[in-house]
Amino acid sequence: MSEPGQQPTNGTATYRDAVRAGIRDALIRDPRCFLMGEDVGRYGGCYAVSKGLLDEFGPERIRDTPLSESGFVGAGIGAALGGMRPIVEVMTVNFSLLCLDQILNNAATIRHMSGGQFSIPVVIRMASGAGRQLAAQHSHSLEVWYAHIPGIRVLAPATLEDAQGMLWTAIVDPDPVVIFENVMLYNMTGSLPVEVRPVDIGRAAIRRSGTDLSIVTYGGSLWKCLAAAEALAEAGIDAEVIDLRTLRPLDDETIMASVRRTRRALLVDEGWRSGSLAAEIMARIVEQCFWSLDAPLARVCSEEVPIPYPKHLEDAALPQVPAIVEAARRTMGAK
């Protein structure tokens, strides 16, 4: 698989293609499945994920919605209650704040407050993350807000295989699933599996094995961490890189097993530092692995600033490879 940001070439697929293939597969396999959201039909999706699907499946199943996040996400929840399997696309995580009421107060809650009478098999997809100079209302990483909520499952596919496979796994899940697609991954190229297989979303994946420290990350930051691990290897530091894949529930077992082996951990998270997912994982490591640690835990998160527009400032606000390398070296006690 190639680095994110690389242009697609003939014979290879992009992350965007992988998501589209996952949606297409779901629509073919389950007649209860449909896609709705802003500009998913005629426009082809804000990030061109659903391009071509309207022609193939028609306007009933590829449903353009008005700009009514709360209305159409709530309608997705209602349709799921009514026996359908909706995939709802919210353009970006920033817009999802307009439907947070529906996701938290209804999707995540109805099963519980009905005493288990109703499940809500809705899939809500949204883009998140910065790097395209879209400034402070289109660039944030609020995954942790969703990962805070009991009653929903939160996924962050970082590879083509996951982007495609997690879609189907999410569709067959009887509970609400929120999927975050990092905007910098859409152009990433790779090859798609010929046959769509459901992926096990319960486990984090070790994307690079190593013995000196565990770098725990997810989504768009995975590729930065892998690049950092290569740079560290040149300096004689052998980093293990864990892709969380599922942000709720967290796979403590995989994380702790790795940290017990390497005795050092670095968390990399595009969310703001305060109250970040990194913070939650650090707390869990302290709770469960304190006596295995040889060094203080470290993290690289976004700076506490709304994402700025100019490229140099946007870059400076986000976790970047040099900062990850630097933090890893400090954790190893190296300069």
Partner: peptide
């Protein structure tokens, strides 16, 4: 908060 849910239930019946 219940209104979008009702719309979705209606959508399911329509589909």
């Amino acid at each position: 908060g219940g209104l979008p849910i009702a719309v979705g239930l209606g959508l399911a019946e329509r589909m």
